[in-house]
Design a protein around this nucleic acid. Structure first.
Length: 416
RNA sequence: GGAGGGGUGGCCGAGCGGUCAAUGGCAGCAGACUGUAAAUCUGCCGACUUCACGUCUACGAAGGUUCGAAUCCUUCCCCCUCCA
């Protein structure tokens, strides 16, 4: 199985991370010879990353696991510009304070996957605002700008697409790729970073950095991209009933995160096990053999492992236990979202539609009514027929009322 | 600066004086079928009110015409194309 000389490349390729690489043989040789430093850039447009970034984070993790040094580069500077790749229109600006807050928040997620420190294989965090904010226009153009030709830049997919669709591409955004290329060179100078990883949509930007490196610092830099992860049915990953799948527990509870993985499509299970868990390939091979309904066992492993990585073993086990109770026994799990209602109010009675709304199972009263009319609402596992029926303390069982919207979304109402 | 085209619900995209909370598609939610899967079929899909052909908010912004405006007029903002 060991096709390559280095653990790094063997692991990444065997687990399905390789999409394109600028020079796989040379990179392999270099990684086999000693620790290398590699980085991935992350946007700071939100206060949390979502599963879409998880593949990238896993690549950094594997770098570290195989003895190399990963750098998570926060795009404090480039976020002010906005990457035009894969985007039809430019986005609004974010102010410095927001970006700084986002970065601080995102850093916590990295701590889950990487070990930070100052040793040779300890991960480090960098922020490109450190060198981009202070750039001087004329010197920058003379040193860096001279190495970019418009001819070349116009052939980049991100640019070409916009132009073909006759959508605007501002000069500001047009500069994004130059700055990203410059980041690479800067990281090389500062930390000896010779590898940039990223999603396949970053290939063009990465190549710019590699080329720039050859020209201004006469070093061979490497680019390595992973495939864009979509579900087997072709949809972009990362949506659930609850919205985007955030990696921050405050935005998405461990239980919901567990459920996200638990609901993986059949065709994705083995691929996701390799990409998003740290299980050995032998173990994954065993799980891959499961078919039909048994594949659910593999999905449970996937969900448990993925949740453990992000939220820790305890939270993952709680989530798994809650899911087991709720789905396999039709009972009640402790981790389900819970709202409190005063005993007095409950005694007086609350309209069914209102309680569903308050429990967060419907975004509005009207939506709750529609849910009930459509037959998707359950109270203590009994179908609700009348949206206006009053729910009173008579419905309380063991101190709680269980509400369900569809088969998968549940909430508890606690009388206090 | 000049000429032309355009800004509609999460997105795409119809509508071009009343019957428009606004056709259709995508996305989303629910039901059926299942394995907490996919595919398929069905229903729902602005908000508020113990839901009524009710009220409010909405078709870039602000005014105006009209019994009545997403639809007409005026001004402003923004975007696109061509010319300079």
């Amino acid at each position: 199985m060991a096709q390559y000389r280095s653990d790094l490349i063997n692991t990444l390729t065997a687990r399905g991370f390789l999409h394109q690489c600028t020079n796989l043989e040379a990179l392999d040789a270099k990684a086999a010879a000693g620790p290398i430093t590699g980085y991935i850039g992350f946007d700071a447009t939100a206060d949390s990353l979502h599963v879409g970034s998880l593949v990238q984070i896993m690549m950094l993790r594997w770098m570290q696991q195989t003895g190399h040094r990963p750098i998570a580069l926060m795009g404090g500077g480039t976020t002010k510009i906005g990457d035009p790749s894969g985007r039809d229109e430019s986005r609004g600006f974010l102010d410095d304070a927001t970006i700084a807050a986002n970065i601080a928040s995102i850093q916590k997620v990295f701590g889950r996957f990487l070990t930070f420190g100052t040793g040779t294989s300890d991960a480090m965090m960098a922020n490109n605002a450190d060198w981009l904010d202070g750039l001087q226009y004329i010197p920058f153009l003379r040193e860096i700008g001279r190495h970019f030709t418009i001819n070349r830049m116009l052939t980049m997919d991100s640019v070409k697409l916009r132009l073909e669709r006759e959508q605007p591409l501002t000069f500001l955004e047009f500069n994004y790729m130059i700055l990203q290329g410059y980041d690479f060179v800067e990281l090389f100078k500062r930390f000896g970073c010779t590898l940039q990883l990223g999603g396949s949509d970053q290939w063009g930007n990465i190549i710019q950095g590699v080329d720039l490196g050859r020209r201004v610092v006469e070093a061979e830099l490497f680019g390595f991209t992973c495939p864009l992860i979509t579900t087997a049915s072709g949809a972009k990953m990362g949506k659930t009933a609850a919205g985007a799948v955030w990696l921050k527990a405050e935005r998405l509870s461990p239980y919901d995160y567990y459920q996200f993985w638990r609901n993986t499509e059949d065709g994705d299970v083995s691929r996701f096990l390799k990409l998003f868990t740290v299980l050995s390939l032998d173990e994954i091979a065993r799980l891959e053999k499961l078919e039909g309904a048994e594949i659910n066992d593999a999905k449970k492993v996937l969900a448990l492992e993925a949740t453990t990585l992000l939220n820790g073993a305890e939270a993952a086990n709680d989530a798994a236990e809650t899911a087991r109770k709720t789905f396999e026994q039709g009972g009640v799990g402790d981790d389900l979202p819970t709202i409190d209602v005063s005993a007095a109010e409950l005694k007086a009675g609350i309209a069914t539609w209102n309680l569903f709304h308050r429990a967060g199972l419907a975004a509005s009263g009207g939506e709750a009514r529609r849910l009930i009319r459509g037959g998707g609402a359950k109270l203590n596992d009994q179908k609700c027929d009348d949206e206006n029926a009053m729910i009173t303390d008579a419905a309380v069982v063991d101190g709680i009322i269980k509400l369900s919207a569809g088969k998968k979304r549940h909430a508890l109402v606690k009388a206090i």
